[in-house]
Nucleic acid binder design. Sequence first.
RNA 1: GGUCCCGUGGUGAAGUCAGGAGUUCACGCCGGCCUGUCAAGCCGGAGGUCGCGGGUUCAAAUCCCGUCGGGACCGCCA
Length: 575
Amino acid sequence: MRTHLCGELRSEHIGQTVSVCGWVGRRREHGEHLAFVDLRDHSGIIQCVVDNDVDVRSEYVLRVTGVVRQRPEGTINDGLPTGQVEIGDCAVEILRQATPPPFPIDARADDVDENVRLQHRYLDLRRERMQRNLRIRSKINAAVRDSMHAQGFVEVETPMLVPSTPEGAREFLVPSRKEPGSFYALPQSPQLFKQLLMVAGVDRYYQMARCLRDEDLRADRQYEFMQLDMEMSFVTQDDVLDAVSEAVLAAAEAATGERPAPIERMSWHDAMNRFGVDKPDLRFGMELVELTDVFASTEFKAFASARTIKGIRVDGGADEFGRNQLDKLTDRAKSLGAKGLVWLKCTDDGFDSPVAKFLSDDEVAAVKAEMGAETGDLVLVVADEWETTCEVLGVLRNDIGRPPVHEGPYRYVWIVEFPLFVGHDKETGAPKSGHHPFTMPHPDDVDKFETDPMAVRSIAYDLVLNGWELGSGSIRIHEPALQRKVFRALGITEEAAERKFGFFLNPFEYGAPPHGGFAFGLDRLVAVLAGEENIREVIAFPKTQSGADPMTNSPIAGDPAAMAELGLKILPPST
RNA sequence: GGUCCCGUGGUGAAGUCAGGAGUUCACGCCGGCCUGUCAAGCCGGAGGUCGCGGGUUCAAAUCCCGUCGGGACCGCCA
């Protein structure tokens, strides 16, 4: 039907008779005898010169046959890759007429209400930006698969209809027709199956796995998302990190044409202490600075009782941040759990601040020295428990300093040595798993289980790119005595463990190899590498924040007959 | 469950704080003119229940209450 793609025609094609197919973009008509039609396909745009009277409108689908020719002097368009040439003597075949689109099929649609874009996603996807994103995603998928195969991984598909599991994210339930009242769950991840594949002797498993979680949607979260899911037998943490790094760096190279440097590592504690988050964006500084000792004997009450005091410096921020903005930052800090936020505008002779009168000269000098603050800088200080102080400043650091996603270098980092336990269960008071209950404790910390459980580190790790958590993994416990010890610390009795996890752990009795794995979110990786702030831009048919699809109108009301067959009845809304 | 922002012809915006006739701008659409444009140009035209419902008022796009939809965030996402 066609001999070339629209976007590939160049000077070298001059003189050739070609046929191209595509959609009518802009057209410039000069009467019955001359019209310029921009024909567009996924590869780009070519100008067709039509000198007979054909009625072509926006987004008509055409097949154009003509001769590629040099554009006349003075009419070359440097803004277009095909701008040196045009197709002349055009025979136009209208393959399909079209209704005018609700929004322009070009970059101007970036500003169109996202609901309208999603309603007509097939038109939105016709645009250059979206075509590019789809193709970057495809390249990344292919590179990841190639890399995994080259490293000896076996792709195994696992079921989508799985048993509901007691812990973790809220699940989507699928009613059973044969057994009304019983439900399958859609997998929040293939966790169960991939570990059993290790018991099965697969040795190295991977899958491009669709995962589903019924939790509230965000810019980086959809109900359904894709993970590169993998698991390896007879390995250490280094083996897993190396294998994942290889796949990710190959994917990055496929998307950007440049292979990133080897991925650095940082302990969870360092990340929290220096950046206030477990997913630090290393593209910019503004690190958290320790100020606790500076205020060891302070008169200022808000600081005197605090366990940890830290600050961040905003270069030149004193003028930039007015009272209104500082109030907003304070509200933000409070909403994140801080008791307040102290701001200090650095002047020649001290600090301009509501709390300046409570600070001694020594304290002012010490803060300036520790923070490296000079006149015109803004210093933000939080005083609280170590974790709260770090977390609040970490969020403020991101709010204030974080560059747009498409800017700056790609900074990958492995965060290692996550704590085994994080926080406590509200009801039982027992510690909660940081990663999941099957995560291997750090061998150096096993004797701290009784004395200081919250200080026990784990062999768990996250991969972070420019402040996005791409994924996480761990070495798993394969040996029952240690697993019992962890369950005990979690406050899970042997009966409860058997009830909750028996179907999963009993197979280990038949010989579970030491194993560990990882899973990373492809949507997020693609988004960052495509320079998109939002994963919806790299998903062909995403859902809105309320979980709806404006194009298909899903979800829709259940059909009464189908519901009856499933034994389902909808209760009236409560309240 | 909560906080904040947004909703005005097909699209994007201004108008809302400070109530006074559906007012304005750009794009698109329809018709006419036009043989080198590329956001073509010029002339003319059509197109809106100001998301929806209620309230206040002589009068509501504008103020108040509710609701729906979209977005950002907190909670949630082992």
